[in-house]
Structure formats: C-alpha cells, structure tokens
C-alpha cells in the first residue's frame, strides 16, 4: 500500500519536472491532466478508513473536470488561436529543471519541520504538495505564454488539493471544490482573454502586454 502511494508521489514529482523541462505547450497540458489522474488515485489510496461511494464520486467528478474538460478547453484554445506551440521560457529549460530540484529540496526541508497533526507518514505527501504548488508558481513566473500561466495555476491547484489530502479529513474536499471553481472561472476568463488578445494583437505573449501600461 505504502509503496504504491510512494510510487504515485514520485510520479507526481516527475510530472512536475517534466512540465519544467518540456518545450511544447500541448505536452504540458497533457501532463497537467496526468497530474489530475494521479491525484485522484492518490486520494483513493491516502484514505485511511476505506473508500466510500461519496469519495469515489468526488474523485470521479474532479478527475473529469481537471483531466478531461479543462485540458480539452485549453487544447482547443491553443488550436483555435493558432499560436506556436513552443513554450518560450524566460528562464531556460535546464535552469528551470535545476531550480525545480532546489524547490524540491526546499519543500522536503519545510515539510520536515511543519508541525503536522498526523503521523510522520504524510510528511512526504505534504512535501510533494508544496513542491507542486511551487512548481506552479515557477511556471507562472518564468513562462511567457498566457496558456502556460493558466497551466501554472492548474498545477498550483493540484498542489493545494494534494495538501488537503495530507490531512485526510473531509473539509479539504470542500475547500478543493471552492478552489476548483475559482480555477474554472480563471481558465474560462483566460481562455476568452487569450482568444481576444490574440485576435487584437496577433500573439499571446504576456511580455508584450507591458506595452499597454501607458
């Protein structure tokens, strides 16, 4: 049991690193969808007291939204806007990877010191959750394309979800629903915004939005 959970968490770390190192937007979108599936599996495994119908249902719903609908929307946005599918990083891929490694170290360090309510077994889950959030932030900060920033938000949201899982109580699921709603709206707005910006300006580089400042 524990080994499977560990394996899934390691895979989650790998998806994060893959997002940092990947140069294709579509690949990143697929990775985020992958993360959502992984998280659903983790949420089922991490429950100490059996899997109820309620839990299954919730997992199914979140997975459908995060691994199905949102990626589909984003893929469509990318396709319709006809943007180039390169990520266009501000910080290079190799540097991003190494930064990611540093963030992982920081996350493990922090998680080891957080006063956690449960036993020590969840500390790795917390670390991975923190790491996922940090990677989301890093993606938002270090990529030019607006789509990538949306993906960064999604990754962050995944991290928050995992963080909630670590406490194995039911409130996090509610929190999660709230956050999910936020992200849903955000993606929606972003999608529309990306669409319009690209129609007006023929590109979706957030860098060049700076030209609008005056």
């Amino acid at each position: 049991m524990n080994v499977w959970l560990d394996t899934l968490l390691v895979l989650l770390i790998l998806t994060n690193l893959h997002m940092l190192g990947s140069s294709r937007i579509t690949a990143c979108i697929r990775t985020v969808a992958c993360q959502a599936v992984l998280l659903a599996a983790i949420s089922l495994l991490a429950q100490p007291d059996g899997i109820g119908l309620r839990l299954l249902l919730l997992a199914a719903v979140t997975t459908t939204i995060k691994a199905g609908i949102l990626p589909w929307l984003l893929q469509r946005a990318v396709r319709e806007v006809g943007v180039q599918t390169e990520v266009e990083p501000i910080v290079g891929f190799t540097t991003s990877l190494l930064l990611g490694l540093g963030l992982l170290g920081a996350a493990l360090h922090v998680a080891g010191r957080l006063p956690l309510p449960n036993d020590a077994g969840t500390s790795f889950l917390v670390a991975v959750a923190l790491f996922t959030m940090m990677v989301g932030l890093l993606l938002i900060v270090s990529r030019r394309k607006a789509v990538m920033q949306t993906l960064g938000y999604l990754a962050m949201e995944n991290g928050i979800y995992a963080f909630g899982l670590a406490f194995a109580i039911e409130e996090p699921l509610l929190v999660e629903m709230g956050v999910l709603l936020d992200v849903f709206v955000a993606v929606f707005v972003m999608g529309i915004a990306i669409h319009h910006i690209s129609r007006e300006f023929d590109h979706i580089d957030t860098d060049r939005l700076a030209a609008l400042k005056d």
């Binding site: 690193l17 190192g21 891929f93 190799t94 990877l97 190494l98 990611g100 490694l101």
Partner: peptide, 8 residues
C-alpha cells in the same frame, strides 16, 4: 537538457 534530466 536530456542529460541534466538524468542527473536530476
């Protein structure tokens, strides 16, 4: 990058 990924 591929090789750095191996180190990572």
């Amino acid at each position: 990058q591929f090789l750095v990924a191996a180190s990572v």
